[in-house]
Each structure stands twice: as structure tokens, then as C-alpha cells.
Nucleic acid binder design. Structure first.
Lengths: 199, 199
DNA sequence: TCTTGTTACTTTACAAGTAAAATATCTGCT
DNA sequence: AGCAGATATTTTACTTGTAAAGTAACAAGA
């Protein structure tokens, strides 16, 4: 984002900047609840009328949504004494269905190796994961869920999904589909191209 | 997100879950770059066929996009020796155009008061902000940008916006407009209703 | 005027992540 | 065999955020 769209500051007016007005849910009845980003972008435009604040409308909102969603969704996890990164780690083991090495967990989980090391230590102290050394290559470890770990994940997952469904219930079916598709396209591009941009 | 959509783990298939298929840019020529979330959701569905993984497609992607965007966009800021939260704070002062109290900065910036206190300390040591006590109420302080602070923000902002534009260039104009509108609607709902849900 | 409650901000103790260095082990070549 | 360079993971030192307590100052009623 431009200036202020971290989890912290926000940006941009309603739907101006980018391109076309909303396709589907732009100006339906009770919809247009003005979001914080709209206000922030308005302020920026008043101060710097020349700048194209379009990107703020997307990036600012993504960041702000991510922050709010995370805060909200941490609740069910905390009830079970897990942080999200911890749950992500356990979830990676659960959904792949097999053992993973710390390195694979780091990649799967988009976090650093050092962070994974720390989490594994805690999770294994809690009896949720177990590790075993590779017999061929003694540098590598293999991590697997214990029964308790698997049960914990399986118990939380439906609750989380139900909670998420409730959180998204403000959008109707078609809107959710559109949003998912657009985000998927953006994400695909970001994942494919960001390395290049960064260089 | 459900299980794994923090900045860490991801989720869900392409566009299935939610509702309608993509409105505009669903299956155009070279588009459908498969994103990580799609893979993750596929894995979850294989393990738990009964669960509705729809929310993952949105929430997982928002989180992942936020993580990638943040990493990418930190670059221009770091060049100037700022973290994003620091820039957000300076930006809040710049875009409002007047002094703010620490408390207002915390609200404007969506961060805790303690965090603002720390940042202000560092930023004023660097000569980017100044503080003065309120004469009426000696509990409150007023923070303002120094000239150096203002120049720094004004110098970075265009670079950031240009960078963001480049990052979003994978989407065409109408898609960007749609995405901004949908995110705006979601965010409006989240900001208005999350407190209620949390309760 | 005391004193109770609130507000504004800061401090402290602590949890968690990161980058860079450290360890240990493997691979391929000579 | 022996060594140079890669890999896999952990360790260390440090940064930053948070929650909770602490400090200071205001407001309003008894």
C-alpha cells in the first residue's frame, strides 16, 4: 500500500481510484456503509490532489480486512490455547496427511525456519506433535501430529469455518464468489511475480 | 480464516466455495495462475470432505495477499529507514493536517497506546515529530510533524503509490474497480459488525 | 475541600519474530 | 581418503508489540 495501509493506518475512498464502479454490489439499497479506508483516502486526496490514490482502495482495504479478520478469528483459537501461527503449523500437518520436515513446515507455513523451530518446541512440549530423526540424513527431522494434535485440529476446524461463514455473511453468495475469484487472480499474480518486482 | 489462513498458512481452491463463478476475470486466456490457497483448500477438502471450505477462499486469500503486499511494500519504506507502523503514524499526521494527541494517533493508526508511545519516542529522537503539552489539560500531549517529517512523508508517498500501482497491474481497470468495491463492502460490514460478533 | 472515579499517557515485564551466526551433516570432486 | 561447498536446523542477540500496572491530572459530588 501507499502510505498507510498497514494493519495500522488505512486509506482510500469508496470505489473511486481503480477502474469501473462496482460491478455487482456497488450501490444496492442499504449497502454502502462507509469504511475507514474511504475516509483516509479522502484525506490524502485533499492534501495531495495530484496523486492517484487508486491503489489505496485495494491495498488499504486488504490490509485492514486482514487485521480485523485476524483479530476476530483468533478468538476461537485462543479458546484452545493456540495462536494462529501454531494452528497453521498443525493444520499443515493435518491437511497434507503425512510427516513434514521443519523446512517443509516453514515453506508450507510461510514463516522462517527459526520461527518454526520455536513453535515446534512448544507444540511438542504440549504433546501435540512429535519429531523423529531421519535415518538416512541425520540433518533432517520429521514432524508428525500426535493423536491429541490431530483431534485438536479436527475439533477446531469446523468451529473456525462456521465462524468465518458468519463473518462473511454480510456478502451474498454471488458477491462472495466474485470476491474469491478476484482475490485468487490477484494472489496468483502476486505469487508469480512479486519475486521479479522485488529484484 | 478457517484453519490456516494467517499470513502463514493458506487455503482454498480457486473460486469454488462461495457463490457464483468469477464475474469478470474468471476464465480469461492466460489468467488462471493457480494460487497457493487453492492448493491448501483442496487438501482440506480431501481430508474433511464434509466441511464447507468456502470461507477459506476469501479469508485465506486476503491474509496471504496482505502478507505478500506488505513484504513487497516495505521495501520503499525501509530504504528511508522507516517501518510501516512508523510511516502510518507520520501519514496520519500528514493527511489530517493538524496536530494529534497520542490517543488519537493510536485510534487513527489502529494500534495500542503503548505502541504509539514507543514509536513517538523514536520518531521524535529522529527529529520527525515534535510534542507539546496541552496548556489546559496537562495529561494530554499534542504531536505534530516537523518540516523534516513532512518532507519525508511527501517524498515517500508518490513512490509508494507508484509501486502499488505496479503491484496491482496484473488486474485490469474494471477488475480493480470491482475488487475495491467488494472489499469496501466487506470492510464496511466488518467495521460495523465485528464488535457485535465478538460479543 | 476531600475523595471517588475517569481519562491520558507511560512504564514494565514478557512473548514472539527476525537476521545472522553457529552446528552438524551431507555431496561431489580430486 | 580428504576437502570445498551446499543443506537442514538450531541458537543467539535484538527488535517490536502487548497486557497490565503505574503515574498524573482532571471532574464532580458530598
Amino acid at each position: 500500500m501507499t502510505a498507510t495501509e498497514g494493519p495500522a493506518a488505512a486509506e482510500g475512498p469508496a470505489a473511486a481510484g481503480g477502474g469501473a464502479p462496482a460491478t455487482a454490489g456497488g450501490d444496492t439499497p442499504g449497502r454502502s456503509r462507509d469504511d475507514t479506508v474511504a475516509t483516509v483516502v479522502r484525506q490524502w486526496r485533499a492534501v495531495h490532489p495530484g496523486l492517484d490514490t487508486g491503489p489505496m482502495e485495494i491495498i488499504g482495504r486488504i490490509n485492514r480486512c486482514a487485521a480485523l479478520l485476524q483479530q476476530a478469528e483468533d478468538a476461537p483459537l485462543r479458546r484452545e490455547g493456540l495462536t494462529r501461527p501454531e494452528f497453521d503449523l498443525l493444520g499443515a500437518l493435518r491437511r497434507t496427511g503425512h510427516e513434514l520436515t521443519p523446512g517443509e513446515l516453514a515453506r508450507e507455513t510461510f514463516s522462517s525456519g527459526a520461527a518454526v523451530t520455536k513453535r515446534l518446541k512448544q507444540l511438542s512440549e504440549r504433546g501435540l506433535v512429535e519429531r523423529r530423526g531421519d535415518t538416512r540424513d541425520r540433518r533432517v527431522a520429521h514432524v508428525r501430529l500426535t493423536d491429541a494434535g490431530r483431534d485438536l485440529v479436527d475439533g477446531i476446524l469446523p468451529v473456525q469455518l462456521a465462524y468465518e461463514t458468519a463473518v462473511l455473511s454480510g456478502l451474498d453468495g454471488p458477491e462472495r464468489g466474485e470476491l474469491a475469484a478476484l482475490l485468487g487472480e490477484l494472489l496468483g499474480q502476486l505469487e508469480g511475480r512479486l519475486g521479479a518486482l522485488r529484484a
